[in-house]
Computed example of a mutant assay.
Amino acid sequence: MGRTPLRSPLPVRDGVGATRLKVPRTGEWPTISAYVAERFGHVDPERLLRRFDRGEVVDITGAPIARHTPLGATEFVWYYRELPVEKDIPFDVAIVHQDADLVVVDKPHFLPTTPGGGYVQNSALVRLRVALDNPDLTPIHRLDRVTAGLVMFSARAETRGAYQTMFADRTVEKVYEAVSAMPADGLPELPRVVRSRLSSEKGRLRVAEEVEGEPNAETAIELLRTGVSGGTDAGLPVMHTLLRPRTGRMHQLRAHLAGLGLGILNDRFYPVLEDESPDDFTRPLQLLAREIRFTDPLTGAPREFRSARVLQEAPR
């Protein structure tokens, strides 16, 4: 049986949970604070020690850890991260459905689902925890920051596992839309099912599509229509596709379309990894999580939700 997750002794604050850090039981450091100072060597050590003096670093009971507490006194410590100055994401997350157990939202492009990469307050999770006054709100699945559309959140811990199991068992039907530039050498044959092996490594920005090995990613792709974009790229010949992923690998839809020569418009990762640059809010990735369907594990009733967003470059 798996270990029971440790519950944070510190409450969620301003929508953000405390950070947990595992501390070695033995080592060359005389105190826990000395280990933390070396672990975060990019931070002024006196600044870190002052946090210990103010009682901002605690053990599992919530008791403060002093700067002189010896190494080995506890295995884990908790603290609140000092939040960075964030660039505002000027788009709102819309609530599609809310009940005692489930919250379904329509996430805009550019807003991350959870804190990360310099975004904390500007994440769907933190914004919703604050707006709904619910520190227990937790995402059941995630969308890339640059992808818009439907995301489901668990509203309480008692029923969270039932919804998470749906995704683990692949009993949730998800439907996406994408817009790609019309390929110069003509359309690939559609509809089709793309199967491949995708792998990802920590620190690598893109997945690798491997020829060898058992496929672990599958997407059904069909053509909705072709035409001319009426958005920022007005006049560009484009094609609008419907995507039904049967697995949920990282960047699966983006990699599969790029592999067909149908890289999604405004994708900075596929087929070519572009240099990092500030977000251009006028050019969102043309990928949308449009629909989600499942049988509710608590009631047995069929549930279906649909995004109200549209892709700006879709053919008019």
Rank of each mutant, 00 (worst) to 15 (best):
L83E: 15
P9Q: 01
L49N: 02
M1K: 09
N216A: 06
D101A: 01
P70D: 01
P183F: 08
L205C: 11
E173P: 04
L236I: 02
A181R: 13
P215R: 05
P5H: 07
L273W: 07
R50V: 07
L236Y: 03
D14P: 03
A100M: 06
Y270A: 11
R142P: 06
D133G: 02
T74I: 05
F52G: 03
L143S: 12
I140A: 07
G55F: 08
R225Q: 06
P64V: 11
H68N: 13
P9G: 10
V151C: 04
A301W: 07
R254H: 05
P188Q: 08
E82Q: 12
D136W: 00
T114S: 10
R81Y: 09
T159K: 12
G227K: 02
E209M: 12
D275H: 14
Y119W: 03
Q252K: 10
L10T: 13
R81E: 11
D233S: 12
H97T: 01
F305K: 07
V194D: 13
D144P: 07
D14H: 05
E86F: 09
P30F: 02
L198I: 10
Y119E: 08
P278R: 08
V228Y: 12
G149F: 04
T299F: 02
L71E: 03
R20A: 15
D101S: 00
E28D: 02
L262E: 08
D88V: 15
L260H: 06
T299N: 04
P183A: 07
E75Y: 02
G41L: 03
D92L: 08
V175A: 01
R13V: 07
Y80N: 13
P188C: 09
V238T: 14
D136Q: 03
V105R: 01
E210W: 00
G235V: 11
A124D: 05
D101L: 00
A208G: 15
M152E: 00
L83Q: 09
V194A: 13
T26G: 00
R160H: 10
R197F: 05
T61K: 15
E173R: 15
P108Q: 04
G186D: 14
N122A: 12
G259H: 14
I264F: 02
R204H: 04
R225E: 10
E210V: 14
E173A: 14
L132W: 00
L143M: 14
A148N: 11
T299H: 03
R54P: 01
E82W: 04
T232D: 01
G248N: 12
A168S: 13
A162S: 13
P215S: 05
S33V: 10
P90N: 06
A289Y: 02
A314H: 04
T4G: 06
L243K: 04
E38D: 09
F167Y: 11
N134V: 00
R195F: 04
N122S: 10
